[in-house]
């Protein structure tokens, strides 16, 4: 279980990215974090594993407050938090297997990781995870030889290799096409329910969030302005999160996209006939 208590972040420039965010994410819950760009979504999840240092508040993972930890202890606690990134953030020039095994870095001594001498159990687990995300045959490929969807699967396997108690997911579908996006979201939700893993998912695509999330938190200018199940995410709620104009523009964009998709579909059907 993760509990955020009064979490705040003010950058040295004086911009308040987060102010007084308090949330509780119970085991097994997938929580979507939505909001306009600049609302602090990315800062929030980076404050949890302290890739960004919060200025005030508590991050309680189980009983441990991550904010007060020293360098070494923070490293050990980071193993409990798996992270999945927007543009995959795989080490491009390493093989898929090395990328998955890099999830074990917090557990193995330096010389083992340097010589790529991982224990049999680690390697088995890595293979098992690759099999789970459907990339068993790609283990020896270099990461930069994969497609976007495949890379994000490797990213998921890397995060799971850590044996995490919490997943932080930063815009997992931002650089993927709509179909692959849905596959990735499905995979993520399946994995979380299999392992009873809580997850916080940053997501800019509201329909996708409504489809896959159990709970949605809306962030605006660093404050929580909505917290509830997707069914409660009404027009008025979305307007409070995104503001009048942005929300209308977004909806319009969605409608255009939907029209274009429908159009393309009919054309394809016409061709197939």
């Amino acid at each position: 279980m993760l509990r955020l208590d009064g979490l705040s972040k003010t950058y040295t420039t004086g911009d308040a990215a987060l102010s007084d965010v308090s949330l509780t994410v119970p085991k097994g819950q997938i929580m979507g974090l939505i909001g306009p760009s600049g609302a602090g979504k990315s800062t929030l999840i980076r404050c949890i594993n302290r890739l960004v240092e919060p200025t005030a508040g508590k991050v309680l993972l189980g009983d441990v407050d991550l904010v007060t930890l020293g360098k070494g202890e923070l490293r050990r606690q980071r193993r409990r938090v798996g992270m999945i990134f927007q543009e995959y953030a795989l080490v491009e020039r390493l093989t898929v297997m090395e990328n998955v095994l890099s999830g074990r870095l917090g557990y193995v001594p330096f010389w083992r990781s340097f010589l790529r001498r991982y224990s049999g159990a680690d390697i088995q687990r890595a293979y098992q995870l690759l099999d789970r995300v459907g990339l068993m045959d790609k283990a020896d490929n270099r990461a930069d030889a994969l497609s976007g969807g495949q890379r994000q699967r490797v990213g998921i396997a890397r995060a799971l290799a850590q044996d995490p108690e919490l997943l932080l997911v930063d815009e997992p579908t931002a650089s993927l096409d709509p179909k692959t996006s849905r596959q990735i979201m499905r995979l993520l939700t399946e994995i979380c329910s299999e392992r009873n893993l809580p997850a916080i998912v940053n997501i800019h695509d509201v329909p996708l969030a409504q489809q896959f999330m159990q709970r949605i938190v809306g962030l605006r200018s660093g404050r929580v302005v909505f917290d509830g199940p997707p069914s409660e995410l009404t027009e008025t709620a979305l307007t409070t999160i995104y503001g009048e104009e942005d929300w209308n523009a977004m909806r319009q964009g969605d409608e255009e996209q939907a029209e274009a998709e429908a159009d393309a579909k009919t054309r394809l059907e016409a061709l197939a006939r």
Binding site: T95, M97, L101, Y118, G120, I123, Q124, Y127, A139, D140
Partner: peptide
């Protein structure tokens, strides 16, 4: 499938 069915050894394939 049980975890034991997966290989326990992996060697980085040569790159050059």
């Amino acid at each position: 499938m049980t975890a034991t069915a997966y290989p326990t050894r992996w060697k980085r394939p040569p790159q050059i």
